[in-house]
Write a protein that binds this DNA or RNA. Structure first.
Lengths: 155, 155
DNA sequence: GTTGAAACACCCTCAAT
DNA sequence: ATTGAGGGTGTTTCAAC
């Protein structure tokens, strides 16, 4: 697979990640293109599916969502059907913002953002009700040191 | 602290997270306001610091960033100065997209997104060079089952 | 790749209700 | 809170180079 994106594409992706509200004129200036040329690139990058949706970040803290917990889960069953059922089960819990099937001492890892310990307790109960899990352990974040960093398009 | 945001505010935050490119007219229609009234709310929510920046999501997969690893770190030192030095050290590694100080069996947890195992090897070396860490263990994501979900503004 | 232009949509700020 | 309107800006699509 040859290089799919040139350095201007990568610059566009880099800047767009951080500053999604820039006008096309401002973005064009930053990456060294005319607005017209940039428009064509944006269209192509969206069609290619590498440029995805635009989102606004909101302050979890200001919303009172002050507790982040990484929940590690070990399960008894490992069939494809069970995995999909578990995914569907977890996807009904909006406090779970991320979920991975992992290797190592546990089978799954979930990132949970809630309103304090009482919020986590509710989420925990919802998670462990209606499906059989072997072990559930939570690692509580005491301090978020880095968050929501952009992907390194060059790395 | 009384309710700081009414249900229309929460709707705005909810929709904006997912659809950050909606025009004010479209967003106003969705939350049941006039464009003018929405504009004032947006301004206030931004001033309050609950509505944060606009970002474009990019496809890690299409960029070849196909490996996600959760790195758990145990350290020898725990002073405030050392913690800040560690944060600065890690913040120089762009493949680390998230970093938490946690409680439990480890002291820190880092989320790393890289280009395959060779990319992870470089990140690992950069992480463990120039600073003393006791133990470093990686949990490799075999499958991302849920990702980048919006915060539940009601939960 | 570039500039220029036209048509349209959007944003921000008024005034009035 | 609403509608309506004006001016400035941004987007999308041309044509021409």
């Amino acid at each position: 697979m040859a290089e799919k994106f040139d350095h201007i594409d990568l610059r566009i992706l880099e800047v767009s990640q951080k500053h999604g509200a820039l006008s096309q004129r401002e973005l064009a200036d930053r990456v060294g293109l005319s607005q017209n040329a940039l428009w064509r690139r944006l269209k192509r990058l969206e069609e290619d599916g590498v440029l995805l949706g635009v989102h606004r970040r909101v302050s979890a803290k200001k919303l009172g969502l002050d507790l982040t917990v990484f929940v590690m889960v070990r399960t008894r069953t490992h069939s494809d059907e069970w995995i999909e059922a578990f995914r569907a089960h977890v996807s009904r819990i909006p406090q779970v913002v991320e979920m991975h099937r992992i290797g190592g001492d546990w089978d799954y890892m979930l990132k949970v953002v809630t309103r304090g310990m009482s919020g986590y307790d509710k989420t925990y109960k919802q998670l462990t009700t209606g499906i059989e899990l072997e072990t559930v352990t939570g690692f509580f974040s005491m301090e978020t040191m880095l968050e929501d960093r952009p992907l390194d398009v060059y790395g």
